[in-house]
Amino acid sequence: MSSVISVSNLSKKYGNIQAINDLSFTVNKGDVYGFLGQNGAGKSTTIRMLLTLIAPTTGEIHIFDKKLSTHRSEILNNIGAVIEKPDLYKYLNAYDNLSIFARMSGLKVSRQLLMNQLQMVGLADRAKDKVKTFSQGMKQRLGIAVALVHNPELIILDEPTNGLDPQGIADIRNLIMRLSKEMGKTVLISSHLLSEIEVIANRMIIIHKGRKIIEGNVAELLDPSHTVIDIDAVDNEGAKAALGTSRWATYLQPGKSLQLMMNKELVPQLISELVAMNIQLLSVNSSHSLEKYFLSLTTNSAHVEPFTN
């Protein structure tokens, strides 16, 4: 599998602020690559560097096996992007907006092509309406039409579901699936929600404060054997002691709270045995260790411990 994006030792400094710190990652052909991080983690900065909006302080970016700094036009010709908000020319209509950006990508535009594109995002009947009359969702769809009009190989979507209603979010998900599965595009999608990445991405990276936390296959990283079970009982000490002598002892996690880590499939058995042991339960919560870790980044951002399974 050849790499579409290859980033090595990328850093960006704004004065004394280290926005991106020695970041390396690889996006392979056909990937839907999840770029995960809290707000301010450096997702946008990285994406802007991929699109040459921002110059890296150090490090190298290769896209389509070519160095970005020397093959800029060639590379950008094959990328479609929606960066943050899908802002377009408000005083122009949807058709003109699409036409302008298509021509900027060196495309010979035909009415047919543009209308097809608008049809694809469900805006054909609004083609002659000014963008300032559009809802956020419609702008987002038009933004995607603009990103896709020149049929790029790599599509970069920066927080594409921001500000959308549930239906809009579902539409975007379906679109990304189609792009990847049916059209074989490589997609890089950034988000601050693991749940979003989880359902559409096959590979992902988590960054925090400009550093890589982890990168890998979503299936492996979210392996169900690493499910964390939090138990709250009326008598937590008693319950802990009872579990310590049972067959569940090996899954018991050290620390004050009553926490176990195991395969998610075992959770129903655990619950029934807890009941059988006459432990009075208040709640049992299961969540993936990565999710738990990711959440801890938000609540405890001052001190970050490396992620370990």
């Binding site: 802007r48 699109l51 040459t52 909006l53 800029r72 036009s73 060639e74 590379i75 950008l76 010709n77 990328i79 992007a81 960066i83 943050e84 908000k85 802002d87 377009l88 020319y89 408000k90 950006f101 900027m104 990508s105 060196g106 603009v146």
Partner: peptide, 14 residues
Amino acid sequence: NMGTLRLLISKPIS
């Protein structure tokens, strides 16, 4: 201001 600059710059135009 409109937010179109980032789109312009990400096009294959120097």
